[in-house]
Amino acid sequence: MPSPTISAVSSSPASSPEAKTQIDAANSAGKPGRPGVWRTWADRLAPAAAFIVLICVWEGACRLFRIPSYLLPAPSAIVIAGLNVTPAQWVGNIGATLRVALMGYVVAIAVSIPLAVALVSSRLLSRTLYPMIVIVQSTPIVAIAPIIVVTLGASDLPRVFITFLITFFPIVVSTVTGLMATPEELIELSRSLRAGRVREMLHIRLPFAVPFIFSALKISTTLAVIGAVVAEFVAAERGLGFFIMFSTSFFKIPQAFAGLAVLVALSLVLFRLCSLAQRWFVPWSLPKSER
């Protein structure tokens, strides 16, 4: 799962500028006026520089050892293959995958959060439904994806359903954890005010679950893309998953890698958008250093 590492990389430059400024001040005593500017830039560019170095090493290795492109294509070959695909094709494939991923994601949120509320509200529901949810989660979705396609027919529906199945579990579990993490004192305060179970849920438990829900939503963006691709592997005539399958089956390995690169970029963008939504709408739910 790429998302946790990605989040760590993307958040670390933003999270500790103060600490760095102090180090800079200590290190650049000979450069009065603009202490730490160079360090700050180095810090910001370091991830990008590391990435570029990796690409160069990859390119160099491919050329030096004459690695055949069907084993490991060079980055330049991947870029050329990507440029040979028409923009219309890219847009069509990205659009198809994005549509399935987002629909599955939205359905997962719409189902998971009310489901989590129900699980927390009723002991009976919790005892009845939780084992079933765990069973669904324990089932390898890749294995039952063909069955789902047969059952639900050839449309977006089976693909959205597969995406939903892969995406919903972390949201349910995190939301339940968040709803249960509410301080007992606040529940007692609510009961002493006789505010009712609905207000207790809306005013106290759900807001307290927001940081937990957003952790799950961030993980689920990448899961949604994975779900859409899995569904496209099984049955699709468009989409990035289909594109990669199709390219591979014609031994157009650089083109398959280009599809993969676009897929990774898509996941990153969705993950980033989710982080930004959290910072924009519920900044209090972030640790102080990340606001």
């Binding site: 301080p183 004192e185 606040l186 007692e188 305060l189 009961r191 002493s192 005010l193 006789r194 106290i204 807001p207 927001v210 519920v282 209090w284 739910s285």
Partner: peptide, 19 residues
């Protein structure tokens, strides 16, 4: 027999609402 409004409670932890 039931919770009452004419009571204020202060707990060990402040348990304020961060939002």
């Amino acid at each position: 027999t039931e919770p009452r409004d004419e009571i204020g409670i202060v707990f060990q932890r402040p348990t304020l609402l961060p939002w």
